[in-house]
Design a protein around this nucleic acid. Structure first.
Length: 498
RNA sequence: GGCGACGUGGCCGAGUGGUUAGGCAGAGGUCUGCAAAACCUCGUACAGCGGUUCGAUUCCGCUCGUCGCCUCCA
């Protein structure tokens, strides 16, 4: 079938993806802890797994994508205390902001976006089972996971428990049997959100909610667990320990981790203080620029967030958009008649229609036809090989060049309309898989108000009279309104600037 | 100190035991009133040192450098 290989952090190899249930793929991705606005780094796993999911669906898999929000946590409580509001309010505010910000990327939503606070019962059950089986113990109203009890501990991160640095860093005020042990349930303190439990009032520890929710929605031995590289240890390691202790079997079978977004070569994170908020980004750039920025490098590589790199991503978007413009122009002229700059197309359109078959049969269309096949094949080869989006983009740029070459020549002679339509649809389709929606790009006069069209008119009149000062002034005014004028064989066109 | 990743032409960034990545920027040209877009031409890069090989950027070792994790973190 449509086999795909992915790099598995657990085995440190690329492996064929073999779903637990034939034709179905279950994915759990660690979403944000909602104690502030998400930054660009947080958006990378969101974007990557959205694109990955799109591709799997394109291949014909039935995908269930689960992406959680951790809405009860120390950091949320800290922030609430600092601002003098309830932690519920902090969680609600930033959950909503997260949904809103990521929603603007136009990639849709995961199938399920579960919240920790809506799964307290499941979490308590997990804790109880861990205590009953001896993998956890209660002390002072808190419950801790007994790390040494789990023989597989460290298998994901390659850490050995006896060499962990924090072995030596005993924390004050903790009644743990071993410094390695971690809290799965925390006894309530005053002014903190808490729930009734067999150990008194309390709240979940960090890692337990993901174990509970992934098992609930995807079951044992589910396919793929993902998130940022920085979650490998301890978060994902601990999830494995909890889940496998309880179920006695494999937790997730494939682990996929995205590399970090950096600034000045240093990881973007709240603690470093070098974050760039997603909503701030979206105020300045087209969302597709972020998607292309991410996709221009491999998801496992670190990626430098810099003005130059973003400009480059913006240029990529422009190149794709321009190709569409060119295609639409040629297709339009084929529909309405040959371009002669005077718009009397009806009589001439027959000529083009008549000419087209001759061109279509000629050797001129062969390079594009071949490029179409080659690009698509290359695109899929790259995507199937551990989701190599940079390579996939290269394939699409190859197609863009072929289209431009063909359009360049054909505009003068008439074009194979079917072939060009096919090329346009294919490019739109493949870019669409990557989450870059370009097919609905506005073209020509659609949606423009009369004032702008009037300026275009004025400029044309001035150009005919060779009053170039006036023509350029009209162009400047259009530019000020956010549009760029391009003189094409089909006449002047407006392109909205991104 | 432990674990892991990486070092590709001006920049970003794929990839491979021997045949073109791609994008951006730059130079020249075509087209254009100008511009924009597009097309054509131009740069023979793979950290350093050894080794394996007929041949290594691609495999192995060492050195140097960078980054991530070992504490909250996407």
């Amino acid at each position: 079938m449509n086999d795909i290989r992915i790099y598995n952090t657990l085995t440190r190899r690329k492996e064929d993806l073999i779903p637990r249930d034939r034709g179905k793929v279950g994915i759990y991705v660690c979403g944000p802890t909602v104690y502030g606005y998400v930054h660009v780094g947080n958006a990378r796993p969101y974007v990557f797994f959205a694109v990955f999911t799109r591709y799997l669906r394109y291949l014909g898999y039935e995908v269930k994508l689960v992406e959680n929000l951790t809405d009860v946590d120390d950091k949320i409580i800290d922030r609430a205390n600092k601002e003098g509001v309830s932690s519920e309010e902090i969680a609600r505010t930033y959950s909503e902001a997260y949904i809103e910000d990521t929603g603007r990327l136009g990639l849709g939503r995961p199938d399920i976006e579960p919240r920790a606070t809506e799964h307290i019962d499941e979490i308590i059950n997990l804790c109880r089972e861990l205590v009953e089986s001896g993998y956890a113990y209660e002390t002072g109203g808190s419950v801790y996971y007994r790390v040494r009890e789990f023989s597989g501990y460290g298998k994901l991160s390659g850490q050995k428990t006896d060499q962990m640095q924090h072995c030596e860093l005993a924390r004050e005020g903790e009644a743990k049997e071993s410094p390695l042990d971690f809290a799965i349930w925390k006894a309530a303190k005053p002014c903190e959100p808490s729930w009734e439990s067999p150990w008194g009032r309390g709240r979940p520890g960090w890692h337990i909610e993901c174990t509970a929710m992934s098992l609930q929605y995807l079951g044992e031995k589910f396919d793929i667990h993902g998130g940022g590289r920085d979650l490998v240890f301890p978060h994902h390691e601990n999830e494995i320990a909890q889940a496998e202790a309880v179920t006695g079997t494999t937790f997730a079978r494939y682990w996929m981790h995205n590399g970090m977004i950096t600034r000045k070569e240093e990881k973007m994170s709240k603690s470093v203080g070098n974050i760039f908020l997603l909503r701030e980004f979206l105020g300045k750039y087209d969302p597709r620029v972020l998607i292309l920025f991410f996709l221009s490098s491999h998801y496992r590589s670190p990626l430098e967030f810099s003005g130059a790199n973003l400009e480059e991503a913006a240029s990529m978007l422009e190149r794709f958009r321009n190709c569409f413009w060119k295609l639409e122009g040629v297709l339009e002229s084929a529909r309405t008649g040959p371009a002669n700059g005077h718009g009397d197309g009806a009589a001439a359109s027959t000529a083009v229609t008549a000419a087209a078959p001759a061109i279509a049969d000629s050797s001129e269309s062969r390079p594009l036809r071949e490029a179409l096949e080659r690009s698509e094949e290359q695109f899929h080869d790259e995507m199937r090989d551990d989701v190599n989006t940079a390579g996939a983009l290269a394939a699409l740029f190859g197609l863009v060049r072929s289209i431009n070459e063909y359009a360049e020549e054909s505009s003068a002679r008439g074009a194979d309309v079917d072939l060009l339509s096919e090329a346009r649809d294919k490019l739109a389709e493949l870019l669409g898989i990557l989450g870059v929606d370009i097919s609905r790009e506005e073209y020509s006069g659609a949606g423009l108000d009369d004032e702008l069209l009037d300026l275009v008119e004025q400029r044309e009149r001035a150009r005919k009279e060779k009053d170039y000062a006036a023509a350029d002034e009209a162009r400047d005014r259009l530019a000020a309104a956010g549009y760029e004028v391009r003189d094409t064989p089909q006449g002047p066109k407006l392109v909205r600037k991104t």
